[in-house]
Amino acid sequence: MPPDDRRRPSEELLLDRLRRISGSADPVPPEVTALAQGAFIHRSADTQMARLLEEESIGIRGGEALLLTFTGEGVSLNLADDEGSLIGHVSPPHARVELESPASSNTGIDVDEVGRFTLDDVTGPIRFHIHLEKQDVVTFWVTI
C-alpha cells in the first residue's frame, strides 16, 4: 500500500477531531452571527455615494504610525495612531466629516483649519462620511 493511502484516513480522523474541538472550544459567538445579519440594514444607505479607495499605509510620520489612506473624487483622508489616539487628516481641509459606527447614528467630527482631527476611545468598525460642497463621499468600513 502506498504511504499516501495509509496516511489519508488518519489525516481525515485528525481533521474530524479538530472540527469537533473547534466546535466546542471556539464556536462562532451568537452575537457575532447576529451582528453579521444586522449588517444588512446598512445596505440601502450605501448605494448612492461615491466610495473612496483604500490603501494601507505603513510607516511613521512625525511620531504618528500611519494606518490607512482613502483617496478618490478629489478627496483624501488618512488615519494614523498617536499613543492610542486616532489622528485623521482630511483634504480639502474645509470638508465636513462625520463618523459612523454600526450601532449609533453619525456624529460630526471637529476638524481644524488644516484638516486635522483627533478621535479618542474609538473601537470596532467605523467609516467616515465626507461632505463637500458638490458631493458626499464615504470610506470603506475599517476596524479600529
Partner: peptide, 17 residues
C-alpha cells in the same frame, strides 16, 4: 475573541457595500 468579533463585523459590513 473581541478583536475577531470586530473583524467579522467589518468583513460583513464590507460585503454589504
Amino acid at each position: 475573541r473581541a478583536s475577531a468579533a470586530d473583524v467579522c463585523q467589518t468583513t460583513w459590513l464590507r460585503l454589504v457595500e
